[in-house]
Structure formats: structure tokens, C-alpha cells
């Protein structure tokens, strides 16, 4: 035999045919049987290792000592320079948050105040001036829990809401602005008028009128997975469903806006929500595909 450890080669299939032929056939048969059956062996270990990884990852890691070359120092210096110059030229301290259709989002503001954004809603504010001036631009609907401090302003296209520490909801829609106060005092104003809301009161601004209303809950229904409507027309209800469930509802022309709906529907169960609206307005929603429906009026 050329290779003294030829049986090690047999196990790794590296033995040439000539070398193999030198092994007596009856011996080769046993070696091949050993090779075959030893590969079917296993250990009886069955201890649960699921916690071992966590134990290991929670054990302490030795701190790495960084030894940097001059080149590495130079590249860090260059990176810092680039950041500084970008910061000077692209200084845009505006922060924007957007909750997409079919979602909601919770945002913590720098002063600890909290904003919950409803579906398809956006806020933005100036980070740089925030400590001096707490002003937020809102499109859509949001619920604010404001920490006490200097005045807090929410600006919309149709009017501005000013408060001290309090909790309130602002709903800015195509034709109306609805503000509800849950705690503290809220001032709502546009170019012409101004009104102060106390807890449990809400106000709706439309093109021509200010409608005062009451609320009997202590935070907006939408933060509790519900959608609340107060004297709302069908087209507004449809827009709200589309926004909240991220669906489209084809209306095939005009919608009958002679009826109003007041009530609450679930924000997390489309089947029930649609059936409530179907019964209230005497209409039918026909499903076209997964996210698309057609409105049929009887």
C-alpha cells in the first residue's frame, strides 16, 4: 500500500479504484459496511438547549481595544468634516411623522407630550424652536396629551387650537374641523372667531357654522379601536372607512347625502363595520377584490 492510512481515505471517498482493488474483497465488504452503518449513528443527547443561547449572550463581553492606524484617524476626521458641512448647508430642522392608511402611530414629542396619529394623518414641527415655541402643523386627525408648559399650538388649514397642558383631539377633514377637549382648556380659533372648550365639549367648524357638541368618553373612540360619527353624511363615512381600513369604495357617481349617521363602529372588524353602515343607510357594499368594494344604493 502506498498510503499507510488508506482506510481514512476510504471514509472520505478519496481512495482510487486501484488502491481499493488492493484490499481483499471480503475485508472491503466489512469496511464498506462499517462506513455505511457508522454514518447512521447518533448520540442520545436530548437536553433542552433553547435557553443556552440566551445565557451565553447575557454573559459579559470583553471590551475591544481599538488600535487605529493614521489612515483610520484621517478617515474619521474626514467623515466629521463632511457631517459638519452638510449640517450647515442642509439644516432642515423640521420633523415629520405620518401614519399611513390603515395604521395609527404614537409619537413622543421632545417635551414629553404625546401624540397619537390616526390613519392617513401627518404632523410636523420645528425641532430647533421646539423648546421656545411648541407649534405643530396637523393634517388629518390626532389625539394630544400635552405636558404642562408654555402654550401649545396645533395649526390646521381651517383654524388653530391653542392650549396649556391638556388632552384633546383634533380632526381635520375635507369640509370640517372637529376639536374635542378631554382635559384642561382648549382654545379654537380661525381668522374670524375664537372659542374656549372645557372638558367634555367639542366643536365642529364647517364652512359656514360652528357647531358645539358634547362627548361622554374620556378619550377619542379611535384610540380604542372604534370609529365615532356625529351626524355624519354617507360620503364622509365612506372616506373614513377607506382611511381606517386602507380600502377603496367605488361610489359610481353621486352618493345620497340626505341621511346622517350618529354612532360607533369597530375600527378592527371590517365585516361588522360595513354591515352596520349597510343597515343604517340602506345600502350594500359589494366586494370586488381583497381591498376594493362597490357601493350599491337600493
Amino acid at each position: 500500500m502506498k498510503d499507510e492510512n488508506y482506510l481514512a481515505k476510504l471514509l472520505t471517498d478519496e481512495l482510487t479504484a486501484t488502491e481499493k482493488n488492493k484490499i481483499p474483497p471480503e475485508d472491503l465488504q466489512i469496511f464498506e459496511a462499517i462506513k455505511k452503518h457508522s454514518a447512521e449513528l447518533e448520540t442520545p443527547l436530548n437536553k433542552d438547549v433553547s435557553k443556552m443561547l440566551a445565557t451565553v449572550l447575557h454573559s459579559p463581553k470583553k471590551k475591544k481595544r481599538y488600535r487605529m492606524s493614521i489612515f483610520q484617524y484621517a478617515s474619521i476626521a474626514a467623515a466629521v468634516l463632511i457631517c459638519i458641512s452638510l449640517g450647515i448647508f442642509l439644516n432642515n430642522p423640521k420633523t415629520t411623522y405620518y401614519a399611513q392608511r390603515g395604521t395609527a402611530k404614537k409619537v413622543a414629542l421632545p417635551d414629553g407630550s404625546e401624540v397619537q396619529l390616526n390613519a392617513d394623518s401627518q404632523i410636523s414641527y420645528n425641532t430647533k424652536n421646539w423648546s421656545k415655541e411648541r407649534t405643530i402643523q396637523l393634517e388629518g386627525e390626532a389625539y394630544f396629551k400635552v405636558k404642562k408648559g408654555s402654550s401649545f399650538r396645533v395649526e390646521t388649514q381651517k383654524g388653530t387650537v391653542t392650549v396649556l397642558g391638556t388632552q384633546f383631539n383634533v380632526k381635520d377633514r375635507a369640509t370640517s374641523l372637529l376639536v374635542t377637549c378631554y382635559e384642561g382648556r382648549v382654545q379654537v380659533s380661525n381668522n374670524n372667531t375664537s372659542v374656549i372648550l372645557t372638558p367634555g365639549n367639542s366643536i365642529t367648524l364647517t364652512k359656514n357654522e360652528w357647531i358645539e357638541n358634547k362627548t361622554f368618553v374620556n378619550q377619542p373612540e379611535w384610540t380604542q379601536q372604534q370609529i365615532r360619527f356625529e351626524k355624519t353624511q354617507l360620503h364622509e363615512v365612506i372616506a373614513e372607512l377607506e382611511r381606517k381600513y386602507n380600502i377603496t369604495i367605488q361610489t359610481n357617481g353621486s352618493v345620497n347625502n340626505s341621511k346622517y349617521y350618529t354612532g360607533t363602529i369597530p375600527a378592527n372588524d371590517l365585516t361588522i363595520a360595513l354591515s352596520v353602515i349597510e343597515q343604517s343607510f340602506k345600502v350594500r357594499f359589494e366586494q370586488q377584490n381583497q381591498n376594493s368594494y362597490t357601493l350599491k344604493e337600493h
Binding site: 499507510e4 492510512n5 488508506y6 482506510l7 481514512a8 476510504l10 471514509l11 475485508d27 469496511f31 462499517i34
Partner: peptide
């Protein structure tokens, strides 16, 4: 070598 010896001993 160990593997080779193991094979011989097994046989």
C-alpha cells in the same frame, strides 16, 4: 492514523 487504526480495530 487514528481513523485508519479505528477501522482496522473495528473490523
Amino acid at each position: 492514523k487514528r481513523i485508519h487504526q479505528a477501522m482496522l480495530n473495528l473490523k
